[in-house]
């Protein structure tokens, strides 16, 4: 086990390079920014003409109760991903709880439509391999926008790929290439539409109020990721959003933040 962890760590460090820029919300190299903005615009158009209309249609023909059942089924199918990663994060008890949740919700919860496990005192504890890598102190690397998939980082992308190893949908369809493609694409599409529907109001609002939507999304993504901490800092009480917020010596602060 230890060996696996070590090789895994070594591999990721080799991929990212240890000296790679940490994700702060400050400046961004010009070339990377140009690329990111281009992909962001592509995704924006794709969203505007394809994903968002579909999500709006989905909202129009379903009730909130139905949509809640759909998102519960998806959440349940992701439970093994959490279970596996909780183990990798050194949380065997939570990992077992997650396995228990999957067993209970898949059966008594009618294929995950209802979260009955929470009633049995097993609350959801969602996690993934990106969070595992963060806990292993792997830096996120620079902010990158992926075609179709949106805001990400080398660490998050690695996490996404590795999480397939825990995905029950992937394994259930593994033996039949034909079924595998159909099921996995449909599953990905349902996940995308369900997630997009849940974010309709929030993203509309963000976009309406934003003077630079890319800058807003980038800042929010990086800040949100910074809540994932290395195990060594897990007990640190320091808030990641605690920047120097005093006005008396404003010049100094602004110079400092620009330099970041």
């Amino acid at each position: 086990m230890n060996k696996v962890v070590h090789y895994g760590l070594l591999g990721t460090f080799l991929i990212f390079g240890t000296g790679c820029a940490t994700g702060n919300a400050g400046g961004e190299p010009g070339a990377l920014e140009s690329y990111n903005r281009a992909v962001f615009n592509f995704n924006y158009q794709f969203d505007k003409y394809v994903l968002k209309p579909v999500a709006e249609g989905y909202r129009a023909v379903t009730s909130q109760a139905v949509r809640n059942r759909v998102s519960s089924v998806i959440a349940n199918l992701k439970e093994p991903i959490s279970a596996g990663n909780l183990l990798l994060q050194g949380e065997p008890v939570d990992s077992m709880a997650s396995v228990g949740r999957f067993a209970l919700n898949s059966t008594l919860g009618l294929a995950g439509m209802f979260d009955v496990a929470e009633g049995f005192g097993l609350p959801q504890k969602k996690t993934d391999f990106n969070e595992t890598l963060a806990k292993w102190c792997v830096p996120s690397g620079p902010f990158i926008v992926l075609p179709f998939l949106g805001p990400s980082s080398p660490r998050a992308l690695t996490g996404m790929v590795v999480d397939y190893a825990f995905d029950p949908v992937f394994w259930a369809t593994y033996n039949d290439a034909n079924v595998r493609a159909k099921v996995n694409y449909s599953y990905a599409a349902i996940k995308a539409v369900s997630m997009r529907e849940a974010a309709l109001d929030l993203l509309d609002d963000l976009e309406r109020n934003s003077v630079d939507f890319y800058a807003t999304m980038r800042s929010a993504y990086i800040q949100n990721q910074s809540k994932l901490r290395c195990w060594k800092d897990a007990d640190s009480n320091e808030a990641t959003y605690d920047f120097d917020f005093g006005i008396e010596d404003e010049d100094e602060i602004f110079d400092e933040m620009e330099a970041e």
């Binding site: 919300a25 003077v211 807003t216 800042s219 800040q223 910074s226 809540k227 808030a239 959003y241 917020f245």
Partner: peptide
Amino acid sequence: IVDIIIENVSLAITARNEYTAFIKN
């Protein structure tokens, strides 16, 4: 109240990054 932080995202920092980018461009 001088800032509201939702899921680790500070409204003040986000607005600051956004407005700084806008003015720069």
